[in-house]
Every structure is written in C-alpha cells, then in structure tokens.
Design a protein around this nucleic acid. Structure first.
Lengths: 127, 127
DNA sequence: TTTATTCGATTACGTATGTAATACTATACT
DNA sequence: AGTATAGTATTACATACGTAATCGAATAAA
C-alpha cells in the first residue's frame, strides 16, 4: 500500500517551490532565491528546510562539502493531493462550483476561457 | 479600507459549512449535524465554535435562552479569499494550470467536462 | 426543594508552525 | 598555527490548532 505523503505547511511550500524549480540546490541557493520573494531570515529558511528533511519530503546529499537538497516528491503529486482536499473542504468537492464562481467573477479573462475550452476539447478520449 | 477577514482552520471550516447551510443554529444543532460527518466530541465542536466567535467570524445571539450562532461573512467571500491564496501558493497564481491538470488527469469524468464546457459558455458577456 | 441535566465558560495539553538565535565544526585566510 | 567565516546542528519561544475535560450556573425533573 502506498504511504500517503506528509503534509507541508504554507511556508514549507515556498521552499518546495524553489526546489521544484531546480534541484539539487544548496541551502544557500534556496536562501538567495527566497530573499527576493520573502523577508525571511536565512536561519528561518534553514529551519524550514530542515523540517522538510525530517518529514522526508526533501532529501539531502551529504557527500559534498556543502549539502545539497532535492525534493522527494513531484510537484504534481503534491498539487493533486492538496487540491483535492482543498476543493473538498471549500467547495464541498465540486470543482465545478469553483469554476462557476471564477467565471462569474471575471477572475478569468476571455482569453483564459478560450484556452480552457480548447484544453477541454483536447482531452484524450478514454478508451 | 476594508479589513481583511480572519483566517480559519480546516476544522473551523466544517463548522462554517454547517452554519452557511442554515443559520442561525444553536450549538446543539451544529453538534448534531457534525455528528454524522465527523467523530468529534460535542465539547470539541463547542470549542471550535467558540474560537470562531472570538475571531469575529461567527456572531452569537445571547438574548434567547439557548444561544444561537450565525456566520458573519458569506461563504462566497471566504471561498474567494481562500481560493486565491491557495492557487497562488500551489499553482503560482494560475487557476488555469490547475484546471489543466485536472482535465488531463482524468480526475474529471466526461460528464464533468461537458458541464464545464457549458459553464464556460454561459459566461455573461462583459459590457 | 433537592437533584439531575443541560448549557456556557474556563482550563488543559500535546503537536505544528512561524520565526528565529546560539552553539559547534570544519574550512579558508592571514 | 591562529582566527575569521561559512555551514550545520541544536535550542527557543510564542501562537495556532486539534482535541477535549472540568467547573459553574441555570433550568428541568422528581
């Protein structure tokens, strides 16, 4: 049976996003990336990273002088898991109700909508 | 300037969903509703409810013998806020990438997709 | 009126999370 | 070789959250 993936916090997601963009990276690489988008202190980032390692969501290569870190799950895997539980919680499980709201609120542009239409049409027929 | 709404936890959402379905309700009403869908003890539900009151997300009417509770924000308001921050965090802000993933992964049935198509077509023309 | 029951208020307690600081260790520079 | 520096490991501490239990007051039942 497949173990279910550890859940990660909002801040931890930021770290993961950096690692998913490029891996492996050193702690310092990650700190530099996040320096732009957040105002976290380096020590804070280091703590978050360590917690991800403890949770076995991020792996470490200790063979190099300076450790490097890599994600142990794909971004898609996490996105799927989070999205499912999110939609369930917030929209009672109905992705559609979410979409309806977004469409009605003009969160989506005409262009977005057209793209979505074509994505829908491209969906491969199940067989 | 509009104050931003207090954030509510996963468990608190369950309470809110019950109150959004019908309000006002007594604590007991809520407890009964949730008894079916969760295995929380009444005291636990009561605590969650009290926290929502403290946060000013739920209001209390203390004029009746038994207090009654009502949501102070609409469900839509909360859905919008949560969805925005969710999509930003998980999909880098692009609702579309989320939908694309869902469509491609067969999370959606043919029927779902047809419904989505018609939802997309129903979008009111901007004027 | 005494007692049992039901509500509401207060308190509890462990784990997760946000947000670091301090301590230790191994290189790098002087 | 001694000291500064950069990494890593350990420790800290307040708030949020999950999950209740206990205490007290008011009402209902006996």
């Amino acid at each position: 049976m497949e173990k279910n993936i550890p859940s990660i916090s909002e801040s931890e997601w930021e770290i993961m996003n950096v690692l998913w963009d490029k891996a492996p990276q050193t702690a310092n690489d990650i700190i530099l990336s996040l320096q732009e988008s957040t105002d976290w202190k380096p020590k804070t980032i280091r703590t978050l990273l360590d917690r991800l390692v403890q949770k076995d969501v991020v792996g470490v290569n200790k063979n190099l002088r300076v450790y490097t870190f890599s994600p142990l799950y794909t971004r898609e895997k996490y996105q799927r898991a989070e999205t499912e539980s999110f939609i369930k919680r917030i929209y009672g499980g109905a992705l559609k109700s979410m979409l309806v709201q977004f469409i009605q609120e003009d969160t989506l542009s005409e262009d977005d909508i057209n793209e979505l239409r074509s994505t829908l049409n491209k969906k491969p027929k199940k067989q």
